[in-house]
Amino acid sequence: MSTQTAITPISISNERNVPPLGGFNFTLLSIEIRRRLRNRRTLFFTVLFPVVMFLMIGLQYMDTSVEPHRTVAQGATSVAAYIMVSMAVYGAMMASTSAGGAVAIERAQGWSRQLRLTPLTPTANIAVKIIGGLSLGLLAVVATFVAGAVVGIHLPVQVWILSGLAAWLGSLVFTAMGLMVGYLVPSDNVMQFMGPVLAFLAFFGGLFTPLKQLGGVLEQIGVWTPTYGIGEIARAPMSGDAFNWLAVGNVVLWLVLFGAGAALAFRRDTQRV
């Protein structure tokens, strides 16, 4: 036996590749989604809370029509259905905000700095946050709709789909808001104060109570909240009202504002770290 240990020759290659898609991949995405699903607080507010709120508030209005001249039995939409969609919007919005806001936790733990030592590009990382938020948001919308169907809400198929899609995709506004706050605030638990802020926005945006019932000044302020537009658009397929351009303008305005804010906050953050 030779006493000399085998010395591995220089075997480190300098011929390297850059990963495609800026490092985006399904291992990363699946770990991200699993982490969201394992967080009990997030699950409570995004899935359980909207379902419970719908059952507590909505169930008593199953037979109350939103139309003055037709009853629910005659085919009119019930107030309960309105509340169901509003709660789905709320759940999706909580999911997106917490997914975007997760960057605050990752910054506080130094993970975002660690990621800068890997090939992952910031764009790919943000894409993972957006898709993660959409996945959890879809769960929230589906859970609320399933609860509605189970207790006997009847809607045409296209209304289920259109309202669901609007509630789900509209929540992108809140992914942008979550990212903006996440890159601004050096906090380990950004959702602890974002939760109350979102509840406040949901109330004044007409998700918990119709804006018309608030009336007067509150109604005029309410149409400017980022929750108003999404709620209106998501409920529009049920009402058959004329297309609400104010609601679309609201969504576009907030998406642009939050998106630009998130981009600025991100740039400020990466320059400092």
Binding site: N17, N25, L28, I31, G110
Partner: peptide, 28 residues
């Protein structure tokens, strides 16, 4: 690559998941 002094780890996943996650980001 670099080994930093503190931080830079996600607390809520396992050691193996952390390594798998990091490995997935590289071409090789």
């Amino acid at each position: 690559s670099a080994v930093m002094q503190t931080g830079g780890l996600l607390k809520d996943i396992t050691v193996r998941k952390t390594v798998q996650l990091t490995a997935s980001l590289f071409a090789n």
